[in-house]
Design a protein around this nucleic acid. Structure first.
Lengths: 231, 231
DNA sequence: CACCCTTGTGTCGATATTGTGACAGTGGTG
DNA sequence: CACCACTGTCACAATATCGACACAAGGGTG
């Protein structure tokens, strides 16, 4: 979330830079494009997490690009915020109907923009597993953000919680330290693989007598499974 | 009631506008969406008081959207009226099973539609929390707008009162600062998330020795719960 | 048995997140 | 106008978590 990548599409360099700088200060990574063609290439290649799209641009307009994105399954999910000049506000419905997730009218305050960006990124993170998962006497409830064993709360840090969540939704399969790093820590972080070992250890401790669910596969990685206790 | 906000979801612009105009004349505020995606966004952001949902739509159908709404606690309460073509009437049971509160078959008279909308909104207003809520030695009375602990009045500001009310009706679940802002401050407010922290602090102080009911979930948000003291 | 590679464990400084008190601005009221 | 309650923001303190590291333990191999 902190290092989400945001594409800014606007034909005016001044606005492009202003927005980019504001977002970078707020901790986001930014890509810039000055027209729809460049933007499209970047979207395909870099798969940004969110797009800030100017409505009025020479050649292909923002709306056209937006429609194109929504049509293609590969790009139809990425959140888009439209940047519109005051005069265009009437057409807002058109923009939202084309598939924009939100809009910001120029001139806008960086604070507001960042707030909306954050809101959209957060929403992207929602809409996933909602039901509690039970394994043996272990209960994992993503809604209340809570894990218990025999009804007794199991204390663990946020990373262990995410790690457990990952395992519960990917059972009976070996994952290398590197894969676990990518899935649980999210994004392309380069970190010491041994860090995974440490958090595995912490997770096991938190799981008490269910620690056997997290299995070491020598030379390969880790596996979460009720079965396959041998090997 | 007079300024209730109604979301109209239909892929045909003609119907969308016809319905919207009729409702606006009747004194309602309207939002429009032409597909399920836009609709979902608006529902999350604007939290309409009622939804008119077309059954047949390209991509995600109305029924699918409805099921999704009912699954998520955040949106499971909003009343939904299905708009169906005559030919689809056979499937009505399916629609009602999915969680629709009512349906109107096309073509329909605006008069009938408005009557049904009014009826549903009335029911919503009745079903509103009117009874005092008790948790341990805490009593929260929305009618008299009054909170007490062991019969002793607990002084708190309006914001803390609303915050407490929100928590009491959404217990045992973690909410992010952003979600709390949207629910308690209402609508699209763009405010510093840390404001929530401060009001949490004020609420805890007002709750005296019941302050443990408001629990911090590191990296996630806050949760109101009698149980789940650990973690 | 000695060696080596892989994995497990405890601890520590740095960092991130949250709690707390203070302050200034606002709007209502007498 | 003075007063008061309430609100949002900030700076700083307190705390929890993270990633790295050092070392221990275990198992396989020649």
């Amino acid at each position: 979330m902190t290092d989400a990548c945001i594409l800014i599409v606007d034909d005016e360099p001044a606005i492009r830079d202003m927005v980019a700088v504001a977002l970078e200060v707020a901790g986001f990574k930014c890509l810039r494009a000055e027209n729809a063609r460049t933007a499209y290439t970047l979207i395909i290649d870099e798969q940004p997490d969110l797009i800030l799209l100017d409505w009025m641009m020479p050649e292909t307009s923002g709306i056209e690009l937006l429609r194109r994105l929504r049509r293609d399954e590969l790009t139809s999910e990425v959140p888009v915020i439209l940047l519109t000049a005051k005069a265009e506000e009437d057409n807002l419905v058109q923009g939202l109907d084309a598939g924009a997730d939100d809009y910001v009218a120029k001139p806008f305050s960086p604070r507001e923009l960042i707030a909306r960006v954050r809101a959209l990124l957060r929403r992207r993170d929602l809409g996933r597993q909602e039901e509690p998962i039970r394994v043996q006497r272990l209960m994992y409830d993503p809604v209340s953000h809570y894990v218990s064993i025999d009804g007794v709360p199991a204390a663990m840090g946020p990373t262990e919680f995410r790690l457990l969540g990952f395992f519960l939704t990917h059972q009976d399969r070996v994952y290398s330290r590197d894969q676990i790093l990518n899935h649980v820590w999210g994004g392309n972080v380069y970190m010491d693989e041994r860090t995974v070992d440490v958090h595995i250890r912490r997770l096991r401790k938190a799981l008490g007598d269910h620690d056997k669910l997290v299995q070491t596969v020598r030379g390969a990685g880790y596996r979460f499974s009720e079965k396959l206790v041998g090997n």
